[in-house]
Simulated scan of single mutants.
Amino acid sequence: MDDIVITGYGIKAPGVVDEFSFLNVLNKGICTQSILKNDNQPHSSIVAGLIEDDFLDISGVNYRRYPRSVRMAIAAAMDASEMSNLDYFKPHRIAVVMGTSAGAILEIEKYAIDGFDFKKFPIHGVSIVDTHTLSGSVAEALGTCGTAFTVTTGCTASIDAVMIGKQLLESGSVDACIVGGTDAPLGQWTINGFKKIRVLSTETSIEKAGVPFSTEHRGFVLSEGAGVLVLERKQSAQARKQKIYGKIERVVSRNEGQKLLSSDITGRHMLEVFQETLGNTIPSFVNSQALGIELNDQIERFILKETCGSGVPITSIKGMIGHAFGAMGAMQIISSLLSMEYGFIPPTIKTSGEGFEDVPIVYETRHQAVESVCITTHGGSGNNACLLLTRT
């Protein structure tokens, strides 16, 4: 079976417009978060990861009626397509598999009050609530007409999209696959929802909000963004002399089968996924899910200690850009591709590791050769997913 490799990628994140700006943020450990103000509730401002661009016009095409999450995905996908020279493949042999968690929640909130007034109801209202608009719109924007799936598995959605894309390529169903995730969740429904279950940071100080690996801080920083990858078989990449950025060695994803708003507090489900993903590989480092939620971060500590002891360093990029739900796994993959290409481990910023002193956390940028990275993701939907990325 031929290796499945990455030949292109695109990213839109807070303070990040392309791979070079992302490299700068990661290498220097820059926090790109800001204050999200609520004009209707002046005392309820929160720290969040905001993107300035509206993506209303992309490459001369008007996308004003498309949900914000879809617009970000299209912009990132176009960058990935250009990097990989995707035009080489026949349109019906290119698949699109995109993941999301919150979908078009911003637009649903915006038009909710008009939902019962036929005259005011937007003509594109049906498309807004149809989450498959995401993958269909990315396919249309890139001119592809192959298989298209939208994955809605919460915070693991983009890792799950990579897994499906890998399987499609291994089966021979397609020749290239556009995979990734996008989320624009910075609306009141999402904010109130995560405040209600007490996992969203309510700090108004950027340095104290969304602190990974710390028992002195509580809650994560909500963010928006999109990450998109182009996958293909190694044989085709070599045949067309296309640069290969990394290999998808293994992906494992499972659901815990827990009740609503519940999760496995023992960490055993995540441990099994982590160990099966690694196999016999000792990664250069772990690009971690850790985001400032105590249970999640303790599970990250548990699976690393049980599997690698103190021998494998671990880091989290979420102190820099926040947590962008279903897009985050793809962003962590792109971060890891940059680590392999430029030889460094990005730092975990904001934290001094209180309560995690026995964990080999990377606090300062560490310049070294990176041969492999394990990416971990898990979320409230009960999914646990890990991906092992290696050099070819």
Rank of each mutant, 00 (worst) to 15 (best):
residue 202 T to P: 07
residue 244 I to M: 05
residue 227 G to W: 08
residue 245 Y to A: 01
residue 272 E to G: 15
residue 252 V to S: 10
residue 199 V to N: 07
residue 228 V to I: 15
residue 269 H to T: 12
residue 263 S to K: 08
residue 248 I to G: 01
residue 223 S to H: 05
residue 250 R to S: 05
residue 235 Q to R: 12
residue 217 H to Y: 10
residue 223 S to L: 11
residue 247 K to F: 00
residue 225 G to I: 11
residue 203 E to L: 10
residue 251 V to Y: 04
residue 268 R to K: 10
residue 197 I to Q: 02
residue 259 K to W: 02
residue 217 H to S: 03
residue 219 G to M: 04
residue 212 P to F: 00
residue 258 Q to T: 13
residue 221 V to P: 13
residue 228 V to Y: 02
residue 210 G to E: 07
residue 199 V to L: 04
residue 259 K to L: 05
residue 249 E to D: 13
residue 228 V to S: 09
residue 265 I to K: 14
residue 272 E to D: 13
residue 261 L to A: 03
residue 199 V to W: 03
residue 268 R to A: 13
residue 223 S to W: 01
residue 212 P to N: 06
residue 273 V to H: 01
residue 204 T to C: 03
residue 245 Y to L: 10
residue 275 Q to F: 05
residue 263 S to A: 04
residue 196 K to Q: 10
residue 226 A to L: 07
residue 274 F to R: 05
residue 224 E to M: 04
residue 213 F to D: 12
residue 206 I to C: 14
residue 253 S to Y: 00
residue 214 S to F: 00
residue 231 L to A: 14
residue 221 V to S: 10
residue 226 A to H: 02
residue 271 L to R: 07
residue 268 R to W: 02
residue 265 I to E: 14
residue 240 R to E: 06
residue 208 K to D: 15
residue 240 R to K: 12
residue 226 A to F: 02
residue 209 A to I: 00
residue 246 G to R: 00
residue 238 Q to V: 08
residue 199 V to I: 15
residue 238 Q to P: 11
residue 275 Q to A: 08
residue 212 P to S: 09
residue 212 P to V: 00
residue 263 S to H: 08
residue 272 E to L: 11
residue 235 Q to D: 15
residue 270 M to G: 13
residue 199 V to Q: 11
residue 254 R to T: 12
residue 197 I to E: 06
residue 216 E to G: 09
residue 257 G to N: 06
residue 271 L to V: 08
residue 237 A to Q: 10
residue 237 A to Y: 05
residue 273 V to D: 07
residue 209 A to D: 11
residue 240 R to S: 14
residue 231 L to W: 06
residue 195 K to V: 02
residue 208 K to W: 02
residue 269 H to C: 15
residue 246 G to T: 02
residue 213 F to Y: 13
residue 236 S to V: 11
residue 212 P to Y: 04
residue 206 I to V: 15
residue 262 S to T: 07
residue 217 H to T: 05
residue 210 G to Y: 01
residue 237 A to P: 07
residue 212 P to K: 06
residue 232 E to R: 08
residue 232 E to S: 05
residue 238 Q to L: 15
residue 253 S to M: 06
residue 263 S to T: 05
residue 269 H to K: 06
residue 218 R to K: 13
residue 269 H to A: 14
residue 249 E to K: 08
residue 229 L to F: 12
residue 248 I to F: 05
residue 269 H to Y: 10
residue 225 G to F: 10
residue 220 F to M: 13
residue 222 L to Q: 06
residue 198 R to K: 12
residue 245 Y to F: 13
residue 249 E to F: 03
residue 219 G to W: 04
residue 213 F to Q: 07
residue 217 H to D: 05
residue 248 I to Y: 02
residue 224 E to H: 03
residue 263 S to W: 02
residue 274 F to S: 12
residue 230 V to F: 05
residue 221 V to Y: 07
residue 238 Q to T: 12
residue 220 F to L: 14
residue 198 R to V: 07
residue 224 E to F: 00
residue 209 A to S: 13
residue 211 V to Y: 04
residue 242 Q to A: 12
residue 268 R to Y: 09
residue 267 G to V: 08
residue 264 D to P: 02
residue 203 E to N: 15
residue 199 V to S: 09
residue 234 K to W: 11
residue 214 S to D: 15
residue 260 L to Y: 00
residue 256 E to Q: 13
residue 249 E to C: 05
residue 234 K to C: 11
residue 258 Q to S: 15
residue 261 L to T: 11
residue 230 V to I: 15
residue 225 G to D: 10
residue 253 S to L: 04
residue 215 T to E: 14
residue 272 E to P: 12
residue 208 K to Y: 08
